[in-house]
Computed example of a mutant assay.
Amino acid sequence: MPLLTIHHVTTYRYRQPVFLGEHRIMMRPREAFDQHLLSARLEIAPEPCELRWLHDVFGNSVAVAVFDRRTDSLIVTSEATLEHAPLGQGQVDVEPYARLFPFTYSSEDMPDLLRSIERQYHDPGRVLDNWARTFVKNDGTTGTIPMLTQMATSVRRDFTYVPRHEKGTQSPLETLTKRQGTCRDFAVLMIEAVRALGFAARFVSGYVYNPSPSEGVVGGGNTHAWVRIFLPGSGWVEFDPTNGIIGNRGLIRVAVARDAYQALPLSGTWFGFPASFLGMDITVDVHRADSSQYPSSVHGAINSRLAGPSGK
C-alpha cells in the first residue's frame, strides 16, 4: 500500500495591496477505505483572522478563511500524507442485472441518485447524445464496464490534452468540437455523456500520480479531475478519461460534487483596482513518503494536524 505525501501550493499575486474577502479551500484528501489520511497541514499567508472547517453537502472537507488586512499576495499551502490502496478495473464487481446495458437502478438507490443523473448542459441537436450512443451496440450485448471503459479510453486516444489555468470549464459540445481540453473538460464531457445514457455520475477533483515509472499519466503538477459513476455492486467507481484509468490507481480524491463548480480547490473574492491582479501560480508534488515516520502502529488511525502559518 503506497504511502504518499502531497504538497500543494497556490499563490495569488497583486500589483498593490488589496482586501481579501472570504476564501473557501478544498485541498484536504477525503478519508475512505481506499485512501487513509495520516496527517494534514494547512498554511495560509497572510494569516487569516478566522479559520473554520465544515463538511459541505457532499461530505467534502472545506476550510473557510476570513482576513482583516491588506496584502499583495495570498499563499495557500496544503500538505497531506496518506496511505493509498489502488483498486484496478479487475476489482470492479457489478451486480448481474447491471452487467449489460441498459439496466435500471434499484428503487432504493434511485431517489438518492436522481440529481446525479440530471443533465447540466443543453444539447438541442443531440450531438452529445449521438456521441454517447456510438459506444452502445445495437444487438443488446453491450457490457456496462466495457462500454464505459471504451468511452474513457477513446477520450484519451482521440482528444488532445491541453493544460489551461484560467477558471471555467468548456461545455461538452465545445470539447467535442475542438477535440481538445483540460482534464476538467474531459471529465465534464464524460459525465454528461453517461448521464445521457441514464447513469449517475459525479465530478471529482484531486491529484494524479505515477504508480510506477512505466505508467505515463498527464495532469500532474496541478490538481486533476475525473469522473465517478455509480454501478450496482461496486458503488461509485472512478473513470479518468484524461488518462484512460478505470479504478483509482494513481488517483487521490479530494472533492466529489455533482458539478465542477462545486469542487473548486480554492475560491474567494478580493477588493481593489481591476488591474491589481497579476496572476496565479499552482504547484503540486506527489511523492512517496518516508514510512519510518509513520510506524505501523499508527496506520489505521487518523492523526490530523491543522495549523496556520505560525504552526499553532
Rank of each mutant, 00 (worst) to 15 (best):
M1W: 00
T5K: 03
V9Y: 00
F19H: 03
R30E: 03
R30S: 00
R30K: 03
E31N: 13
A40F: 15
I44T: 10
P46A: 14
L51N: 01
D56P: 02
N60W: 11
V62S: 10
V64W: 00
F67N: 00
D72M: 02
D72T: 01
D72P: 01
I75D: 00
A85S: 09
G88D: 14
V92T: 14
R99K: 14
R99G: 15
E108G: 00
D109A: 14
L114T: 14
H122D: 15
N130E: 12
D139H: 07
T142W: 13
T144G: 12
I145T: 08
P146K: 06
T149Q: 08
S154R: 04
S154N: 03
D158F: 05
V162N: 00
G168H: 08
P172A: 07
T177F: 13
K178V: 02
G181N: 03
M190N: 08
A193F: 04
V194D: 08
F199Y: 13
A201M: 11
R202Q: 12
G206V: 04
G220C: 06
H224M: 05
A225S: 13
G233E: 11
G235A: 08
E238M: 05
P241M: 09
N243T: 11
I246C: 12
I246W: 03
G247E: 02
Q262K: 12
P265F: 04
L266M: 14
F271M: 11
M280W: 06
T283M: 12
H287V: 09
L306S: 01
